[in-house]
């Protein structure tokens, strides 16, 4: 099967980023959301970004008009019935995702590929309530999706090998770098990056060095682009804390992933990083 028509379910930051990437790569894309206002706003933001790309001459006028023509909006899930690939990008709530996939399975073609952009849930579990759980695969994009080169392709326990091959090839057609990963907590990036934050916080709480010192050291001794504390402030203390908790719980309390109580105190205090003007640093 060749992937021609794609459906994107959800039009938040990630959903609209993925839809933009798809239309720019010249795939006919239907972006679906239940709320028509949100859908319209998402379309406007995609179009604005495409306009800027044309101004910067990163898109030719022809690519620009084709990209826009490739995008269709819908608030009716049955409009996704002819899609070869459906990418689900809704909030990280297991029941919500399972229910959406059940609906999708009812309307879509038998050989359609159903991809979830989950970063923290089990692909195997999301697929579990479907008749064709072998069609479900994880496609974990990184934000902003049009720019970040990586896509983690997650193989659920029941995912069919042909589905993996098709999705790997598809990611290459998007000019991305797909990496294949077993369905394990945090996949690769969110798992292997845990110590960058966890160990930095532990070192700070053990009074070995200050956040400023640790950031300086990691950049000047380790050549990291950003230090662990400035990066947490950018990501959001709450977002980072919930990633850590989810990997920790996913591995049944493996101590390498144990969060620090100080992260929870910061979240309780509403000190969430740049978005609140205060995190490990002040941004007033």
């Amino acid at each position: 099967m060749q992937i021609k028509q794609i459906g994107v379910i959800g039009s938040g930051t990630m959903g609209s980023g993925i839809a933009q990437l798809l239309v720019q790569s010249d795939f006919a894309t239907i972006m679906y959301d239940i709320n028509e206002d949100i859908l319209e706003k998402a379309k406007n933001s995609i179009f604005k970004r495409l306009d800027r790309l044309k101004e910067k001459e990163r898109l030719t006028p022809d690519q620009w008009s084709k990209s826009k023509a490739n995008l269709t909006l819908s608030s009716q899930i049955k409009d996704l019935q002819d899609c070869d690939l459906i990418i689900e990008v809704v909030p990280e709530k297991l029941e919500l995702k399972k229910n959406i996939f059940k609906e999708v399975e009812r309307i879509c073609q038998q050989d359609a590929i159903l991809a979830t952009n989950t970063s923290s849930l089990s692909v195997t579990e999301i697929a579990s309530s479907l008749n064709h759980s072998e069609s479900v695969v994880g496609m974990h994009f990184f934000n902003p999706a049009p720019l970040m080169p990586l896509i983690e392709i997650i193989k659920g326990i029941k995912t069919a090998p042909e589905v993996i091959d098709q999705v790997m090839n598809f990611a290459k057609q998007l000019h991305k770098s797909p990496v294949l990963c077993e369905d394990t907590p945090g996949f690769i990036v969110n798992r292997v990056a845990r110590p960058f934050y966890n160990e930095a916080i532990r070192i700070m709480k053990d009074q070995i060095a200050s956040p400023e010192q640790i950031d300086t050291i990691m950049k000047k001794a380790g050549n990291f682009k950003m230090g662990p504390f400035e990066l947490q402030d950018m990501i959001g203390i709450d977002v980072n804390f919930s990633s850590t908790k989810s990997v920790y719980q996913g591995f049944f309390g493996e101590s390498r992933f144990r969060p620090n109580s100080y992260q929870e105190r910061m979240v309780q205090a509403g000190i969430l990083g740049r978005k609140t003007n205060k995190g490990f640093y002040d941004y007033e």
Binding site: F142, M148, P149, L150, E152, S177, V179, L180, C181, E182, T184, F187, I188, V189, R191, V192, A193, R194, P195, F196, N198, E199, R256
Partner: peptide, 28 residues
């Protein structure tokens, strides 16, 4: 500690070595 985690992931066959390295360079 980051290398230890990558080694656990490789040992458990979560992904191959090149994928682990590429993911950390391109994803973060």
């Amino acid at each position: 500690m980051i290398i230890n985690e990558a080694a656990f992931a490789l040992m458990e066959n979560t992904a191959d070595a090149a994928s682990i390295d590429e993911a950390m360079k391109k994803g973060t």
